[in-house]
């Protein structure tokens, strides 16, 4: 057998294995920073810390969570927050993108200004909104607490009691603090969503819009039947981003309302924070984290199914 014949299979083996070696560092990093913490969280969710050490408790952490009244309340608050936050941001973002797409004068300046909330940290944005409405001393306190504008005693956003719920114990209509939280969170997320939608709008071919106009479509029909379907994949990406930040973020709640007044802005992510970092119940916090991961997955797969983006892109 010649030397060349011996070398050839070696070369082939090397060439075949090369992609594996190339992605190996990435896999190792992923294993360390993603897979291990995920597995550890699963392990934690079946354990609880006792003075003797970690104790296997089976499903008790989940049971305790389900029996906690605040957990049920938090689900309601999360739904209200998520629906309010995602829909307000998407709608406002879409309309601002439409305006900016008209190539207004100084549109560059508007986009720059629009970016300001995005460069602020959640915590800072929350503190700014809080300073606006602090009772008696806030920048808007004089307006909000004016009894002639908000009868009978004015409105103290951070301490106002939630209205009586319309549907059993489901927290709707939301407390004023929840509305403020939704507004603040949307304000913070608006730049990213607007830019995403603006970029998608600018990819819609002008010929298509022109021809639909010639065919007699009005502005609303162009937006509804031409632009929206063409922008749908981007809109779904924007929605994913809103869902994930809406379910998981905690910074804004931390600095704006602290889950209050009472428990009226206590959403699941904040509950997770308090169980884990205030009460130091790591096992129970891990079980809630698992539940939230499943909720995230369900929401995203549900969105995909509803919008049928996967089928459209095939």
């Amino acid at each position: 057998m010649s030397r060349i014949a011996l070398i050839q299979p070696k070369k082939r083996r090397f060439r075949n294995a090369l992609p594996f070696w190339l992605i190996l560092p990435t896999i190792i990093v992923l294993l360390i920073v993603q897979v291990y913490p995920a597995l550890y969280t699963m392990w934690l969710s079946f354990h609880e810390r006792e003075p003797k050490g970690w104790e296997y408790v089976g499903l008790r952490n989940f049971q305790r969570l389900f029996h906690q009244s605040l957990f049920h309340e938090s689900i309601g608050h999360t739904i209200v927050f998520l629906v309010g936050y995602a829909s307000l941001t998407m709608i406002a973002g879409f309309f601002i993108a439409l305006l900016l797409n008209r190539k207004l004068r100084l549109s560059g300046l508007y986009i720059t200004l629009l970016f300001i909330p995005w460069i602020l940290a959640d915590i800072i944005a929350g503190m700014v909104f809080r300073l606006l409405v602090i009772p008696d001393y806030g920048l808007l306190a004089g307006f909000l607490q004016n009894p002639t504008i908000f009868p009978p005693k004015g409105l103290s956003v951070l301490t106002a009691v939630p209205p009586h719920p319309w549907f059993g114990s489901f927290p709707f209509p939301p407390a004023p603090a929840m509305i403020l939280l939704i507004l603040a969170s949307s304000w913070r997320a608006l730049p990213f969503i607007t830019l995403l939608l603006l970029a998608a709008m600018q990819t819609v071919p002008t010929e298509v819009i022109e021809s639909s106009r010639i065919d007699g479509a009005n502005g609303w029909q162009i937006v509804r039947f031409i632009m929206t379907p063409l922008m749908l994949p981007t809109m779904v990406v924007a929605l994913f981003s809103l869902i994930l930040t809406g379910v998981n973020s905690v910074g804004m709640i931390f600095s704006l309302t602290g889950g209050g007044p009472g428990t009226s802005t206590e959403v699941l992510s904040y509950l997770l924070y308090t169980i884990g970092w205030s009460q130091l119940r790591f096992g129970r916090a891990a079980s809630l984290a698992l539940i939230m991961a499943i909720v995230n997955w369900l929401l995203i797969s549900g969105t995909l199914r509803l919008t049928r983006v996967e089928e459209r892109s095939r």
């Binding site: 009772p135 008696d136 001393y137 951070l158 301490t159 309302t257 602290g258 007044p261």
Partner: peptide
């Protein structure tokens, strides 16, 4: 005062 319920140690202001 209402500020007693605002959190963030703002009750001190009163």
């Amino acid at each position: 005062p209402e500020i007693a319920f605002a959190g963030g140690f703002r009750e001190e202001d009163a």
